[in-house]
Structure formats: structure tokens, C-alpha cells
Amino acid sequence: MNVVLGPNRYGKAETRVVRVVRDGGVHHIKDINVSSALSGDMEDVHLTGDNASVLPTDTQKNTAYAFARKYGVDQIEDFAILLARHYVDSQPSIHHARVEIEEYFWDRIPVSDGPHLGLRDKQHSFVRSGREVRTCVVHHDRDGRTTVVSGLKDLVVLNSTGSEFHGYIEDEYTTLKPTSDRILATAVSARWRHASDGSAFGKSYAEVRRCLIEAFAETHSLSLQQTLYAMGKRVLNTRREVCEVRMAMPNKHHFLVDLEPFGMDNPNEVFYAADRPYGLIEGSVLSDTAPDAAFAWE
């Protein structure tokens, strides 16, 4: 039997970078989590322990910090492209770089004070926002190909009506009752592939997020699968820079509580929110002209 080395990569995972921009007394925060993974001419380090082709993971961590200082951090996709191209272009042994970034949002705490305190121009207090996490994954290789996948996760949405579920397979183990009026809630994880790496990523993110939320709200749902498709279709029909959307949507079940033992009815008003187990709906929606880039999702 012959034993060979298969696909491999290595890198630095979850380098937390917080950059504060001081504009007088007004501060701005960028809070990101950077993970890099490199591959290429790496056979010797695995087979013989020769590290001559290895850029240390500690160096990758330091590069993220240094680039944050040197170039700043605006849109996370642009920062990821900058890092990925640097690794491939600067090191002959590195043929492919994958950079993934998560962004965490902070809301400014409003300041009010008396005239003697002089705090109105000192806006430097923040509270961690409860909204979703913004994400991106960038791939860049020595052939000059760059792919950008933007995304978000933990976008929690809920429709208190306008959702049905019936007509499904029923066998000897089925206990779920059909319904024509239920709560539909989910925590959306969505990723979308850009047709090129030249998008205005900040505007694109805001518009894709808007499309997802509006489609969720406006779709009378017969299944969460139908809603997922409607959300992806809305993005592709609205945002021409996007060629593929992939989503994972857990069904956050809300069960009507039986109040009859207490002599009360329950006309769809009181529910038990169950955290597990849950249905998990996953799917992709793509343009029939989308260029193939399977590695973009790895």
C-alpha cells in the first residue's frame, strides 16, 4: 500500500484585532476576528519536518495587527483581500491563501451632561450590539484568482403569523399536527458569492441584508424551505454583484401551550420557545450564469 500526502493547509485561527480610530473626541471601533490558512509547496514540512517553506502562524498573527495599523480596517472584505494577496505575492512557497473574518458590531452610548462637565464632544463609550455577526471568506491563488464570499450569521427574525405547515408525509411515528397559522422564527446564516472582487462591499452588505429581511417578512410561508428560496431569489434579482447565496436556517420552534388544565383557552397567544431539538434547513440559490468557484466555499 502506498501512502501519500493529501490536501493540506495551515494558518492562524481567530486573531482578534480591535482598531480604534480617534477623530478628536469622537472614537470609532472596528472589532474583527481574523483567520488565515495557507497552502502550496508544503510537502517537505509534512514528510521530513523541513520548515523552509513555512511562514509561521505567529507571523500571520502579527501581519494582521501590522496591516490594521498600516492600512486601517474599513470593509472586512477589502482587508481580507489585502492579507490574502500579501501572503501569496510575498512568499514563493505559498500558492493559495484563505482569509476569513468575522466582524462584531458596537453601538455608541449617547452622552448627556451638564454644561460644566464638557462631555458632549467626548464620544468614546460603546455597548456591544446584539445584532448579527458580519462575515467574509476570501481566497486568492498564484494564478491571480480571487473569490469573495460575504455573509452574516445569527440574524434572528420572527413572523408571528403568515406561516403554515401541512401536507407533509405522515407515518406511524408522526405526531406533528398540521397548522395553517404558526410562528416562524429562525437565526439566519447566509453567505453570498460576489461575481467579482470589485464590489462596494459596505453598500452591498447593507442591501443584501435588507433583501433577506424584507423577503422573510413579505413571504407567506408554507415551509421554511420556501422562505429560504424566496430570500435567496430576492437577493439575486436585486443585487447584480451577487451570483450565489447559501443559507442555513434553524427552525426555532414555538409551541402553543395547553392552558386547558387551568380553565383557560389559548387563542394563539402563549407559546413555549424550544431551543432544541430543531429542524435545520439548508440550501443554495444561484444564477444559471454564475461562474464555477467551488473552492470559494471551502
Rank of each mutant, 00 (worst) to 15 (best):
G11D: 12
A13F: 03
T15I: 10
R16C: 10
R16P: 04
V17D: 09
G25R: 01
K30M: 14
N33Y: 03
V34S: 01
S35M: 12
A37N: 07
D41V: 13
T57M: 05
D58N: 02
K61S: 07
T63Y: 02
F67N: 01
R69H: 10
K70T: 15
D74Y: 08
E77I: 15
E77S: 05
D78L: 14
I81N: 01
A84F: 00
H86R: 05
Y87L: 11
S90K: 07
Q91K: 10
I94S: 07
I94K: 04
H95Q: 15
A97Y: 01
E100Y: 10
I101R: 01
I101Y: 02
F105R: 02
W106E: 02
D107Q: 09
I109E: 05
D113G: 15
D113W: 02
G114R: 14
G118F: 00
L119V: 13
D121W: 13
Q123C: 13
S125F: 14
S129L: 09
G130A: 12
E132R: 09
R134H: 08
G144C: 15
T147Q: 10
V148E: 07
V148K: 03
V149S: 03
L152K: 05
V156D: 04
L158E: 08
S160D: 04
F165S: 03
I169T: 08
E170V: 11
T186F: 09
V188T: 04
S189E: 13
A190S: 08
G202L: 08
S204E: 14
E207F: 06
V208H: 00
R209T: 15
R210G: 08
A215Q: 05
F216G: 12
F216K: 05
A217S: 07
E218D: 15
L224N: 09
A230V: 12
M231L: 12
V235R: 01
R239S: 09
R240T: 13
C243W: 02
C243K: 03
M247K: 03
P250R: 08
H254N: 08
H254Y: 14
H254G: 04
L259Y: 03
L259R: 07
L259P: 12
L259Q: 06
P261G: 06
M264D: 02
Y272C: 11
A274G: 09
R276D: 07
G279H: 01
S284G: 10
T289P: 00
A290E: 11
D292F: 05
A293C: 11
A296N: 00
